[in-house]
Design a protein around this nucleic acid. Sequence first.
DNA 1: TCTGGGGTCCTAGGACCC
DNA 2: TCTGGGGTCCTAGGACCC
Length: 356
Amino acid sequence: MQIIMLIDMDYFFVACEELRRPEIKDKPTIVGSDPKQGEGRGVVMTCNYPARKFGVRSGMPISQAYRIKSDAIYIPMDYDLYEKISKDVMKVVKSFADRFEQVSVDEAFIDVSKKIKSYEDSLDYAKRIKDTIKEKTGLPCTIGISTNKLMAKMACEAGKPNGIRLVREEDVKEFLNGKELDDLYGIGKKTKEKLEAMGYKTIGELAKANTMDLMERFGSFGVEIQKYANGIDESKVEENYEVKSIGREKTFEKDTADRDTVTTAIRKLSDEVIGEVKKAGLTFKAVTVKLRYGDFTEHLKSRSIRRSDDAGDLASNAVDLYLRYSDKSRPMRKIGVRVSDLTKARGQKKIGEFTS
DNA sequence: TCTGGGGTCCTAGGACCC
DNA sequence: TCTGGGGTCCTAGGACCC
């Protein structure tokens, strides 16, 4: 029997802020971009449950949050802090795992099939993990337990906040049956719309759908999501995950058609990307520039270059892609720089050389 | 309502080679 | 003049997730 858990930190960024500012606890608090009296351009990254009570949600435009709750506490992102705390959390989680896979700053899968022999034991074990995280970091989390990664994830969603939720193999069908299509991992807005147009309204209906119809409409992705709808996921908890790309992007405070403003931004982003590349001891071979115009249309321009880890190589290629392929008559909203096709730099792997 | 920034994976066409 | 099959690399874009 396979037992997989997903450990997901509750309202992580706000919870981190609460550690150093205990007085904000129980007050509506929002971590995200500056609301600027309702004129701000970003979104809500995380908010705590007191803020959610008023209808604030993560991902919501910060201007909208401000309209709902202008007297909430607004805090800018402090990613260094969250990363530092995340390391402490992950260390604990890893110590309980046979296999460990971090999926984001505040989430990790563990395979505990060798350590745990029954579902009953898994509940006690999850409680120990939860208590240890709380003891070592002071932070709450939710743990989903099931037979594979997909179902551990779904169980975790159902267990939030501050909970432990087990979905036994024999209960998977019933657990999924009446849920909305976009509750299923992998199904977003677009796929939901297409499935609804085909007449499917719930995960249970998708599970029983005609596979050939799905195949025709979605190709192999159709077969994949039907497996998901049946609670089937054969992917493993992957221990040694390698990063595939590194990028930085920036939304301008106001849309701009000014070349110098954009090229200056590209150079700055390039420097930041190179900082990450060197820290990780990597080299890159592909450069991509992302251009988003004021009307939200988005274009990617990329090219392969001689393998490099050099700031000048990145900046010159990124600027050139922008100058060559962008429409200068349209104001730009956002610019991004990304490198991919990454490989470990050779012969310079002294421990700590690149770490700050 | 007015939409961030970090990523991943998949598809598909064209170039090019054998 | 009409024409294969396979493979890899490159580039662009779409959808999704946290």
